[in-house]
Every structure is written in C-alpha cells, then in structure tokens.
Write a protein that binds this DNA or RNA. Structure first.
Ligand SMILES: [Zn+2]
Ligand SMILES: [Zn+2]
Length: 927
DNA sequence: TTAGCCTTGAAT
DNA sequence: ATTCAAGGCTAA
C-alpha cells in the first residue's frame, strides 16, 4: 500500500491512504528500543538538512477520501504523520515512511489507534498535506499506550482495555514514538539509552490535535454548517450585481446569535457585530447613527502621520493579534495576518461552525499551529475583537466600512507616529521603575498616551465577566511591542464590566487583598497572558537544520520573529530521579485544617531578617563598572567575555551565581559563598520553621526539597555553551529550552501532589505555566540567595540589568545592540522584572516563600471552575504560605497579600517574555 | 482549506 | 493621486 505521493502529485487516490496504525508504531518503538536508533542531534541535523522550511510537526489527518467531502461513517479516518504547510519534502524521510508503511500492510481502518491531527479534513487535502513525512519533528500526542507487551493482542479491538491514554512525545516516523515516562502508566518506560540522548519533549497545551477519550479515540469531526448550507457565492469583482445585497449570512437573528454563542459559549460577551450591515456607500448620508451598541467615532483630530517609510517596517513588523504571524494591517477590526484575515472572512461568509476536537476549547493559536483547531482560532478571532459586521454581506470590495462598523473596531486607523511609540515605551519603563513597590504597578491597557486622542469607547471590546478573557492588556501587548502599533489606536477600554472578571484566583484572594485596595489591579493583571502560554516549540523553536542563517534569520533568532519553526525541544530526561528524603518527617499530618492556624499566631516575635550577610560591600564598586561587557570588538574575544560575564559574578555587577558545581565560579567571589550556603540551609535546621504548623512544615519541606531541581543557574556552566557559529547559538537556545523543560518536568513529578493531578491537567499546567515559573525563578533568585540591595536603587538595578543583558546578547549573537533598541523591545518587561527583583530583595523574600509562590503560580487557573483538585491543592499551599508569613513575619500583616500580588506581575512579565520570544533572557539574568 | 497576492473604491 | 481595508483569485 503506497499511498504516499510524490510531491505535487495527488495523494491517496481512491485506495487506502497511508497511515500509521498502532502496530506500526509499536514496531517502530520496538525497533527503537532494541536498536537504539533514536536519532541524536547529529542524526536530526542530518535529517533536517534537506528541509529548508520546517515547522513544528504534527500529526495530520487524512480522510483517505481525496476530493470527496462526504465523510462516510464507514470510512474511519486515518491519520498520518505529516508536516504542516511544507511543500518541500525530504525524499529521504518519505521513503522511509513508505517502506515502513509497506511493512505494515493494509491497516485495519477501525483500529482507531491512529494519531490524528485536529484538522478536520472535510476538504480535499492538498497533496502536501498528506502522507508526507519530511521533518524531524518532535511533538506530543495523546495516544493509546498499550498495557500489554504482547503485540499480537494489539489488534485494535477492545482498545479500551488494552490501552491507556497517555501523552507521548513523537518525532518523525524515523524515530517513531518515544514514550514519555508517565507516572502510573504501565508499559511506559524511558529506555536507558534514550535518557541520555535526545528526548523529545514538546510541550503543548493540548493533546496536539488528537483525541483519545475514555471511550477510545474519537474521530475528527467535521465542520458543520448551520441550517443555511448555501455555498459561498463568489461574486465577480466586476459583476454588476455586486451592489445589491445578495444574501443573508444569517437567516435570522437567532441564527447569528447561535453562531456567536457557539464560539463564545458564554465565556465572553461578543459585541462586535451588527445586523446586516453593508459597506459604506459613497454619498450615502449615514450620520453615524450610533444605534444600540455603537458609538460615534470622533475622527482623529491631530497628529499628522509623519511616519517615515523606512526599514522600520521590516525591522519591527506588525504581528497578528491572533497568531503572532507577520501582520499585514488592520483587518476586521484588529491587526492580523493575511491568513487570519482570510480565515475570518471565510468563516463568517460561509457561516462555518467548527468544533474543537483536540482540546477543550482553549487550544493554543500561533503561527505554527493556527490550523490545528479552527474552532479555537475563530474563537480567538472573536475574542480578540474581530468584527463580524466588517465582513460584508454584499461582498463589495474596496471602499470603507460604515462608521457603524468602524465603531466596533478595536484598533482604529492610523493615528500616531511611530516615534510616539518609542517615547511611550520609555515612559512606561520609567513609570515602572519609578514605582517603589511592585504591587503598585499599573498596567495600562492603552498603549497610547497621546493626550490629544480621546479614547473611544469600544462597545465590542467589553469582554465582560470572562474567566479566560484575553484582556485588552493583551491587545496592547499584541500591538504594542513588536508591531507598529502606533499607526493604529487601540481603544482604551476602561470598561467597568472588566471588573466582573471572576477569576477564582482573584476571588479567593480578594479578601486579603482588599485591604490594600489592589483588587482591580490584581484582576486585570491576572488575565494578561491568557493567550501567551506558548509552546516551547515556538519559543525555542529555532530551526536546527539551517546550515546558514542569513542576517535576517539571525534577527529572527534574536527576536524570535518567525522563529517558531521546527519545535526542537529535547527535554533532557537524563537526570535520573534520585529519591531524596521527600518524607523525612515521616508522618502524615492530615489531621489538621491547614487554614486554621494562620490567624492565631505570634504577635510580638521580632522577626530577624538579619540572617542575610551583608555581602555587598563591593557592590557599589561593581556597579560602577557600568557595562560589564563591552561588546566584543572581535569575535575572537567574545567567548572569553561571555564566559567571563556569565561566570564571574563580581565582574558582573550584582548577579551572583550559585548552585553550580563549577569550582572557579564559586571561587570567584569570596564573601558571597557563605551567603549561598546559608540560604540553602536545610529547613530542619532553620529554627524559624519549628513554629510552623506541622502540616505546613511537612508540605514546605517537600517543596524545599523539590525546589533544588529547579536551579537553572548552572545551565550556562557548560563548555559547549559558548557558541562559535550561529547554529551553535541555535543549539544553545534549544538546549536551554531542553534543560528548563526537563527540570520543570522533574520538579513537577517530584511534587507531593503530583499523583493527585490527572495526567492531562498535569501536562496542561506544565505547558501553560513553565514560563511563569521561569520568570518567578528569575526574579526571586537574588532575593532567595541572600542578596541585599546595599543602597542600590531600582533605577540602577534596571540599568544594570539592561546593560548586562546587552552585553550577553552582543556576545551571544555577535551583534551590537543599542540600548534604545533593547528598551523598545524589552524595556517594559525588563522594567517589571527589575521591579520584581528589587521588591523581592527589599522584602527579603525567603526561600520558603519562594517555593510556595512557585507552586501557587503553577496551580493557578484562570478558569475558576476548571478543576477542583487543582484549586484544593492550591489552597493547601496558600495556607502554607500564609502560615509561613504569619509565623515568620508577624510584623508584616500585609506580606501575604503582597506576595500574592507579585504573581500577576510575574505573569505579566512572563507574557511579555513569551511575546518577545527572547526566552534566553532569564538565563542571562540569573547568571 | 489556506494564505499570498491582486483588484477595488471610499476616504483622505 | 494615494491609502488601505475590503473582496477575489488561485497555487499549494
Ligand atoms: Zn494570524
Ligand atoms: Zn481547539
């Protein structure tokens, strides 16, 4: 059975399409396990060389019914590993696939254990979609994991008893499927030989498109249409009938609201629609009747557009508000790419009704995987404020939409100069760093500060009461950083309805927070990065296979533009789990209510925070060295400089490295060592802990023990981490991703509540929170390790951070950066980070508090009702934190609330980090 | 189906 | 005359 077609030829003609049934996978897995043929880095590189455009792989779906849109129920869909949007193919890999396929023979189509992509392929798959395996991809899929080793039993029958659902990293068919060790799943082991090599871990927030329910694998459903199944009428652009209203998109108002409800599902209110609008026709007096939910738009008064058309656009391209792809302008109300523009148009014109089959309606949408779930993509479109009414019923091209429609636009036509953006950005940074307390930080959703422009209320922007609301702050990020957002005006929504956000996290803490009057800030910021839980594949997804990176590509590498290719995250699972004394206290303290002891504790105990040795006598001197790394004038020196920068803390301002086994590292600083060791004082030696509630003490002990895994500061202490070539830079970044993922996985698996969490929740948590954890580690590191400010101001800290980062980046990328440039790119984020660092140091954040915050952050759910288990566990650790604070800092009654209020900022910074895609920043800052 | 490129035409 | 956001077309 060779259904694999050659490039540009038809696929799966009539016959059974190529596919991988489970037996095949098993066989490949067996092959892998016995022959250790897992491709290592070398193998991967050689394999992907022939591919010039690699995107994150996924497992595609082919209905085997090429050209026929009718999916007969008898024809079970089959799935094929494929690559997305990749016309080019590697004949090498393809051949392999064909061979394997042939080995297997014809599939039993209803075996069902096929891995599928979320794509619902009612359409005829283009040739390049099907049966193509051309990339060395890594990915994760939920597949059935056999519970028996007897391959003869794996015949596809009675699958529910023979398989368990499991998360399995997948690579290209060459390597088959490599099981991730999933706790509790029988038959899944990580072979020893795999643990040393490339262990692909590609974290996704969803099961990568495939649905394996408790009742077995679920076939990908078809996109349905609403009652009116009219084919889209293609109106000739020069047709004479175009002026007349040709048809109704929605037969009735009920149908339209049904259409909208299908995507909002009550989770947010969509107001970006009007009934039956046409485009603006010349000479029609429309007088901007602001009926109902529309409001008159006051056209821009001032600010002529003096934007010089320069290379600026190329350097700072707009990004799509939906998928972060390069945007081409304002489309249907927001800045989007051509793809999302077309997708929105097609969906609205044809009233397509999709279904999320791969996830639970919250699939990640980015450039790489925007086509995996149409439902979630369109939902995001609505959520982001794309205006249904902007899709014209009469299909008349050109012109401008009516004011009524325009009033629904979240982003207005160009109004501002770009120079304004830089100024605003700087102002924001100054604003951020000028605030002594982080919790006072206010995120203004309105990027523009132009006083002359009165923000226009945007009725459609009122995504009230939305748990997973992509707030308008997100919109700001979308348009405000990498985009030439200044060209457009984002409406500043100060909708009071926003306070309806019912984030449980907010609710749970409002009581303690309310005294500080910060609840609103908290709420707003909590939901900043709902859509930013990006995949590692994107953030670290720098093309490994490129042998040459032109300067432009290098730019991508640095700033992450379009770098979301070829998810190459190889989680290093080699760190074997060494059982430590997780249960050293030996008893289970389960007889107390954890929440009860918080109120009643000490009153007069003098909290001695003097355990931190004042090590900063030299700090002032060090900070005076300003730029620690003058950019390597010669490539030759850059390694040494970078190494020096990264490994010698005292030449590097205030960043102290610890936890490293590198002897020269620790020997470079003298007095700091004692601080390090003291900060690692084991809990039982700490007299402070004795006053804790026993259960809290126990939980805390576990956390402290687990936390040792998460020391990421040694990631740079490797000889190979000082790149010679750009490819090495790529590898470095990938490696960093690998490491942090591996550490996070190890960490979560060691957490005492790990077994309480369902598998899918676990993976969701990891994939959506890893960057927040990383940000927390980054910002708390110095405080936790006993640094003191020693007179350093926040401004100095910020400047030092920026300079340090600049130096590191220049050495890493062998490219000069201007401070202005960096501030434009990451100034806001660095402001927040510095602010957090400063605050944590200033308040002497303890390691005990840090580990609690870490878990609370991990377990935070934006959607309140999502998972009670998670909420309970989170409450548990909230109580621990409360206990700690109450007993250790009785003089600071607000400290608990203050600590929790840092979390939204962590999320904000994390969201900015993800958006910047410069994920390496934390690794630099921790050095 | 997707998404890049093209045409259109009111607004500027 | 130019802009730029609509719709259209079509290769992949
Ligand atoms: Zn897009
Ligand atoms: Zn989805």
């Amino acid at each position: 059975m060779t259904s694999v077609s050659l490039p540009n030829t038809g696929t799966s003609k009539n016959g059974s399409p190529g596919f991988l049934d489970f037996k095949l996978k098993r066989r490949r897995l067996s092959d892998i396990l016995t022959t250790s043929s897992i491709p290592g880095n070398t193998s991967i590189e050689s394999d992907v060389q022939s591919n010039s455009s690699s995107e994150s792989g996924y497992i595609s779906y082919s209905d085997g019914n090429h050209g026929d849109r009718n999916n007969s129920p008898d024809e079970s869909p089959v799935y094929n590993i494929s690559s997305e949007n990749s016309p080019e193919r590697s004949s090498h890999c393809e051949k392999q696939f064909i061979n394997n396929d042939n080995e297997t023979g014809a599939p039993t189509s209803n075996s069902g254990i096929n891995i599928g992509q979320c794509r619902s392929s009612l359409f005829s798959p283009p040739p390049y979609y099907a049966n193509t395996i051309n990339k060395m991809h890594v990915g994760v899929a939920y597949v059935g994991i056999p519970t028996t080793n007897d391959e003869n039993q794996l015949d596809g029958k009675d699958i529910n008893n023979k398989f368990k659902m499991g998360l399995v990293p997948v690579m290209s068919p060459m390597s088959g499927f490599i099981p991730l060790a999933i706790n509790g799943l029988s038959g899944v082991q990580i072979p020893q030989e795999l643990s040393k090599g490339v262990q692909p871990v590609f974290m996704t927030s969803m099961p990568n498109g495939f649905v394996m329910t408790s009742s077995g694998p679920v076939a990908v459903s078809s996109p349905n249409r609403l009652s009116n199944d009219r084919k889209p009428k293609s109106v000739s652009s020069c047709g004479s009938d175009r002026s007349g209203p040709t048809s109704k998109k929605f037969q009735t108002k009920e149908t339209e609201s049904e259409f909208i409800d299908h995507y909002t599902n009550g989770t947010f209110v969509y107001l970006g629609h009007l009934g039956g609008l046409k485009h603006k026709v010349k000479n029609v007096n429309e007088s901007d009747v602001g009926g109902g939910n529309s409001q008159t738009v006051k056209e821009d008064e001032t600010v002529p557009d003096m934007t010089p058309v320069s290379t600026y656009d190329n350097k700072y391209p707009m990004v799509c508000g939906i998928c972060n792809d390069k945007a081409t302008g304002l489309h249907y109300g927001i800045i989007t790419c051509e793809g999302c523009k077309g997708f929105f148009k097609r969906t609205v014109q044809n009233r397509r009704v999709y279904t999320c089959v791969g996830g639970s309606g919250n699939c990640e949408i980015n450039k790489t995987q925007r086509n995996r779930c149409q439902f979630c993509r369109f939902k995001k479109c609505l959520h982001a404020g794309m205006v249904l009414a902007a899709v014209r019923e009469d299909r008349m091209p050109g012109g401008r939409n009516s004011g009524e429609v325009y009033n629904l636009y979240k982003v207005k036509y160009k109004k501002h100069k770009r120079r304004e953006e830089t100024r605003v950005c700087k102002e924001r940074v100054a604003q951020i760093i000028s605030r002594p307390n982080g919790q006072q930080l206010e995120i203004n959703p309105c990027i523009t500060t132009d006083k002359n422009t009165k923000p226009v209320s945007y009725p459609g922007a009122g995504y009230h009461g939305n748990n997973n609301s992509i707030s308008d702050t997100r919109q700001m990020y979308t348009t405000g950083q990498n985009s030439k957002s200044s060209v457009y005006t984002t409406d500043c929504v100060n909708d009071s309805n926003q306070t309806d956000v019912t984030d449980k996290w907010c609710q749970k803490r409002n009581a303690s927070i309310s005294s500080m009057g910060q609840a609103e800030h908290f709420k707003t910021q909590t939901c900043v990065n709902r859509d930013s839980s990006s995949q590692l594949s994107c953030t670290y997804g720098v093309s490994q296979h490129k042998k040459k990176l032109c300067d432009e590509k290098m730019e991508n590498l640095i700033y992450g533009y379009g770098s979301s290719k070829n998810g190459c995250v190889h989680g290093d699972m080699s760190q074997s789990f060494v059982p430590r004394k997780m249960f050293k206290s030996g008893r289970c303290y389960d007889n107390r209510d954890t929440g009860s002891s918080t109120e009643s504790s000490a009153t007069n105990e003098n909290c001695s925070n003097n355990q931190n040795v004042d090590l900063t006598s030299n700090l002032q001197k060090l900070t005076n060295t300003n730029t620690p790394v003058t950019c390597a004038s010669t490539m030759k020196d850059s390694h040494a400089i970078l190494r020096s920068t990264l490994t010698q803390p005292d030449t590097n301002m205030f960043f102290m490295t610890s936890g490293s086994n590198n002897p020269c590292l620790l020997s470079s600083s003298s007095g700091e060592q004692s601080v390090i060791s003291s900060s690692y004082m084991s809990p039982q030696e700490d007299p402070k802990l004795t006053s804790l509630d026993p259960r809290s003490r126990y939980l805390l002990d576990c956390l402290l023990d687990c936390d040792k895994i998460l020391d990421i500061t040694d990631l740079y202490q490797r000889d190979h981490l000082f790149p010679e070539t750009k490819d090495d830079v790529t590898n470095l970044l990938c490696g960093l991703g690998d490491e942090i993922v591996g550490k996070l996985i190890q960490w979560t698996k060691r957490l005492s509540f790990f077994k309480e969490i369902p598998l899918d929740i676990h993976s969701q948590l990891l994939s959506s929170k890893w960057h927040e954890i990383l940000m927390l580690i980054t910002t708390t590191y110095k405080a936790v390790h006993g640094h003191t400010l020693n007179g350093m101001t926040l401004e100095e800290l910020y400047t030092n951070n920026m300079n340090h980062l600049k130096g590191c980046m220049e050495c890493l990328f062998k490219k000069e950066f201007t401070v202005e440039h960096l501030e434009t790119e990451i100034g806001e984020m660095m402001g927040i980070i510095s602010n957090l660092m400063y605050s944590f140091i200033k308040m002497n954040l303890s390691r005990e508090e840090h580990v609690c915050l870490q878990v609370i952050l991990l377990l935070n759910q934006c959607d309140s009702g999502q998972n009670d288990i998670i909420n309970k566990i989170q409450d548990r650790y909230s109580s621990v934190l409360s206990d700690i604070v109450t007993s250790h800092r009785p003089d600071q009654p607000n400290r608990y609330a203050e600590l929790l209020l840092f979390l939204p900022q962590i999320q904000t910074a994390s969201a900015l980090l993800i958006q910047s895609k410069m994920i390496y920043i934390p690794f630099f800052l921790n050095q």
